[in-house]
């Protein structure tokens, strides 16, 4: 597979490590509910189709990338940078 790292450009999948489901939202620090924490840690949608997932460019710029990929065809539909420099965040 070829992942289009927003900073480095398209790179072979061997430079990345898979960091799992990209839709998980960690409960707020103040949230002490065990159920909310359990859901965050254990529940996975695991869809057969488009899947939002996170890849770490460990052997590149070491940023995290939110990738939309189809789990039936492996076709990658979008790549977006996460972290302080993510486009979504206010600069």
């Amino acid at each position: 597979m070829l992942i289009d790292c927003p900073w480095c450009g398209p790179r072979s999948v061997e430079e990345f490590t898979y960091r799992g489901d990209g839709t998980l939202k960690r409960p707020a620090l103040s949230d002490r509910s065990i159920d909310a924490a359990n859901a965050y840690v254990y529940d996975r949608e695991n869809p057969a189709g488009d899947h939002m997932e996170i890849w770490h460019h460990g052997n590149g710029c070491r940023s995290h990338i939110l990738v939309k990929r189809n789990t039936l065809t492996h076709k990658i539909l979008s790549c977006e940078l996460l972290g302080p420099y993510s486009a979504g965040r206010k600069k």
């Binding site: 770490h56 940023s63 995290h64 972290g83 302080p84």
Partner: peptide, 16 residues
């Protein structure tokens, strides 16, 4: 290292 980098980029990107 990967655990901490994940937390900074994905969980709390607001932390400098």
């Amino acid at each position: 290292m990967e655990h901490l980098e994940y937390i900074l980029d994905v969980v709390w990107p607001e932390l400098k």
